[in-house]
């Protein structure tokens, strides 16, 4: 059964770009357009293998979403990788504190994204 990856990004282009990298590698990619939708999907989908999440989004940004779901993410040992234009150490530190497992600065390199997803979905925590 294909592992399910949730991509949360307000850009449909980025969601499509990520899906275009992960789907051919055998992952099932599910999409959410902001932190509110993303949080709902994480809560309702118990079999997610990994979450890829943007930072700057309308309604709820990725870091706020991560903070909101911090305990649930830890409990489920759900790997979260932030995919963002931001490279600020403070934001990275906040994400790490909330349980994120990785940080990628856009535009991403396809092989690095795929490698990180494969590694994190293989090892879990």
């Amino acid at each position: 059964m294909a592992k399910r990856i949730l991509i949360i990004d307000d850009s449909a282009s980025v969601r499509r770009q990520v899906s275009g990298v992960l789907s051919p590698a055998g992952f099932q990619v599910i999409e959410a357009a902001d932190g509110v939708d993303g949080a709902e999907q994480i809560r309702s989908l118990s079999d997610l293998a990994l979450v890829i999440c943007d930072v700057n989004m309308p309604r709820m940004n990725g870091l706020d979403m991560l903070e909101t779901l911090k305990e649930e993410i830890a409990q489920r040992q759900l790997p979260v990788v932030m995919l963002t234009t931001e490279g600020q150490p403070e934001a990275m530190a906040r994400a790490k504190k909330c349980g994120a497992r990785g940080w990628i600065v856009k535009p991403f390199k396809e092989h690095l994204l795929l490698g990180a997803v494969q590694k994190l979905t293989l090892s879990g925590l």
Binding site: T85, G87, P89, M92, K96, A100, R101, G102, W103, I104, V105, K106, P107, F108, K109, L112, L113, A116, K119, L120
Partner: peptide, 15 residues
């Protein structure tokens, strides 16, 4: 100069 090395576009860090 930042105290912590900055990430460039395309960089990946795993925690």
């Amino acid at each position: 100069p930042p105290e912590v090395p900055l990430l460039d576009e395309g960089d990946l860090v795993l925690f």
